[in-house]
């Protein structure tokens, strides 16, 4: 678990083998450290710290489009944002809701599914190498191509899926999949699952493979079922990895915008707040509103992620 790393360092820093700058070749090492860290730290200061502080600053400002300068706007942006979310103006309400639906999707659907897939594949069933290789394909192909191929497949008139349904005599099931608010969001979600399992599968497979053989073998001798093995041995053993994957998925949910942008242009009830931010900046030059939305989501996201983390850590303690 990444965060618990921080506490681990404290212990590991006591590791006597590490160089203690105070005692060892003071100046030379110090210079080395400074040279090595200068660029990464500067990079972080500019692209992470400065950008975030500036976002905070912008969220209290507004762009004057006729002068190209920012002016102080107080809480105007936040007011506008909340108003838009509450009244669902320009689908802001839906975008806000979707961000949290995505959180649920990433945490409660994709991670468990990936875990099941990884568990099944860990049994070295026939073709497991083939499956592992194919499942990872969405991660090596650009999302632009992936979404393009996906939209070809689900296109209403010449698309693969509708054509297939028609041939199977299921014409009543054909839909305008990506162009109907009743099916578009579900379709985008299905896309995310379809393309998202591979990566988690790889990481979780790695963890499952490291479970000591003796544990699994002795359990087998005890005659437990696959289900029991999965629930009582596999999940607790790889829990730290599950935590990492879950937290990564949770934070990713607040940044999702490319999938809806490329699949539906954010229409038909599929937008997210992150996509709204991108649209406001690139199309409208509404830096203020975009920043206020960014800050709001960062705060809500941090709270949500903390809650999830707390829950995960509690389980970890129970098992250890």
């Amino acid at each position: 678990m990444i965060l618990s790393d921080i506490s681990k360092i404290e212990n590991k820093n006591k590791d006597k083998k590490a160089i203690d700058v105070k005692s060892h070749k003071l100046n030379k090492s110090k210079l080395f450290i400074i040279i090595m860290l200068a660029w990464p730290v500067a990079h972080w200061l500019v692209f992470t710290l400065f950008m975030n502080l500036q976002t905070l600053v912008y969220s209290f400002q507004r762009l004057n489009r006729f002068t190209g300068k920012m002016r102080f706007a107080g809480t105007e942006n936040y007011m506008e944002l909340f108003e838009k979310i509450i009244n669902n103006t320009a689908s802001y309400g839906i975008a806000f809701r979707n961000t949290f639906l995505w959180l649920g999707l990433n945490v409660l659907v994709i991670v468990p599914l990936s875990l099941v897939v990884a568990y099944v594949l860990s049994k070295k069933i026939p073709f497991h190498r083939f499956f592992n290789a194919v499942l990872f394909i969405p991660n090596i192909i650009s999302i632009v191509i992936l979404t393009m191929v996906w939209s070809f497949a689900w296109a209403p008139n010449q698309g693969l899926v509708n054509e297939l349904l028609t041939r199977l005599g299921l014409e009543h099931l054909t839909r305008v999949w990506l162009g109907d608010p009743k099916s578009a969001l579900i379709n985008v979600f299905v896309y995310c699952v379809w393309a998202g399992i591979g990566f988690n599968n790889l990481i979780l497979s790695g963890a499952i493979a490291k479970i000591p053989k003796e544990i699994l073998e002795s359990a087998e001798l005890d005659g437990i079922s696959n289900w029991q093995e999965f629930i009582h041995i596999v999940i607790p053993s790889v829990w730290p990895t599950i935590c990492t994957v879950t937290i990564l998925g949770a934070t990713a949910a607040f940044r999702v915008f490319l999938h809806p942008q490329l699949l539906t242009n954010g229409q038909y009830g599929t937008s997210t707040i992150a996509l709204k931010v991108v649209e406001e900046v690139l199309a409208g030059g509404s830096y203020g509103l975009a920043s206020a939305a960014g800050i709001t989501m960062a705060v809500l996201g941090y709270i949500a992620v903390s809650i999830i983390k707390k829950f995960l850590d509690k389980r970890e303690k129970e098992w250890s």
């Binding site: 905070l56 209290f60 004057n64 300068k69």
Partner: peptide, 16 residues
């Protein structure tokens, strides 16, 4: 500090 920074930004008139 953020509020101060936000307030400082220039006004400027259109069509200079």
């Amino acid at each position: 500090a953020v509020m101060l920074l936000a307030g400082c930004s220039g006004g400027g008139k259109a069509a200079d």
